[in-house]
Design a protein around this nucleic acid. Structure first.
Lengths: 187, 187
DNA sequence: TCTGGAATATGATTTCAATCATATGCTGCC
DNA sequence: GGCAGCATATGATTGAAATCATATTCCAGA
């Protein structure tokens, strides 16, 4: 199903569509239609700087929403380009704006957003840790190691090699257990 | 005055207080009172991991709010410790929750939160750029260089030395102008 | 006006993560 | 069953940012 809080909006507010690599969902300056929930595939949000520099704003991954702020804007402020084919749901801007009149939707939206902000702040703190070993340890303590080590490394802004080495060092220091190939947990 | 959207809440929902270094605003597990807007000073949010590891969750700076998610929780999930003396305003949890019944407050909250999420995503993308010179350039294009270079460096998760060197390299490459000591802008 | 602290700025050295390379195990699929 | 692709894992080398050091400028405040 749709992630909170958008599951509370009328089903008429959603449009499913499949996307192919290279598709452009919207362009900087185009009138805003709403936000998107990516089911599968990959989408990049890119902005062109004042002197023509391309700048990636965000890389959306499966299960996440993007362009939420477009709901409060007349025009998109970046391009959305499909990197890997997949599927997504577009959620009407007007439905979201109307949804804020429903305290249930509004509170759920607020809770989700506040938790997301907190998670971002924590990741930024962790990414600011210089030593790979300390960073990986903090990432584990924060519960960021749930999927593959490769994904974990990307979230920590480390190469997977550096992450594997740090994991091994932590295991050798007795701070982390490695019960089986590819699984690590706090000692 | 108070930053959006909290300026829309009744003044009775606010309590001003001064804070001294070492003060503890709340502890992990304590009943939640609400969120805070820091006027001056510095506050750290810290969490204790399952095995007793101290982990900084967030470092709040002047003019920003923190513990927003506590509004949706029974207990605080981290400690708030004053690092530098200053002043702050506490905003009642119940007033915020009640505020969501007001569509104007709810939409303003939603807009603020969505924009903050976007800003965080962009900073995370920029921080993921490995080369200091590219990172600094992206930071400038994104408009992150507004205060001091020292603050800019901290936002980029670079040392200020590395940032100064990157700025000099960008100036020498003609990509950035340095009209006067301490001021840099796109060429 | 003097002084202390912070920002600006840059040089020298070190360290440690990125990069490059290689190997193995696992999984899905043709 | 075999092959392709990916995650896991680790070694060797390189490169670039951190660290350490130092100097100047600027500003606030005593």
């Amino acid at each position: 199903m749709l992630p909170e809080p958008y599951d509370l909006l009328p089903t008429t507010a959603r449009q499913s569509q499949t996307i192919a690599t290279g598709d452009v969902l919207f362009r900087q300056g185009a009138r805003t239609l709403g936000l998107y929930v990516l089911k599968t595939g990959r989408v990049h949000l890119e902005r062109v700087g004042p002197n023509g520099e391309r700048l990636i704003i965000h890389r959306a991954t499966s299960g996440t929403s993007f362009a939420e702020a477009s709901v409060f804007s007349e025009r998109y402020h970046c391009d959305a380009i499909v990197m890997d084919a997949g599927a997504l749901i577009r959620i009407d801007k007007s439905a979201v704006l109307a949804g804020f009149a429903n305290p249930d939707f509004a509170r759920t939206y607020g809770r989700q957003a506040a938790q997301q902000v907190q998670a971002h702040r924590q990741i930024m703190e962790i990414v600011g840790i210089r030593r790979a070993e300390d960073r990986v340890m903090a990432g584990i303590v924060a519960g960021l190691l749930e999927g593959t080590v490769v994904d974990f490394a990307a979230r920590l802004q480390l190469t997977h090699e550096a992450t594997y080495r740090a994991l091994r060092a932590l295991v050798e220091a007795g701070r982390v257990n490695n019960p089986s190939r590819g699984t690590y947990r706090l000692a």
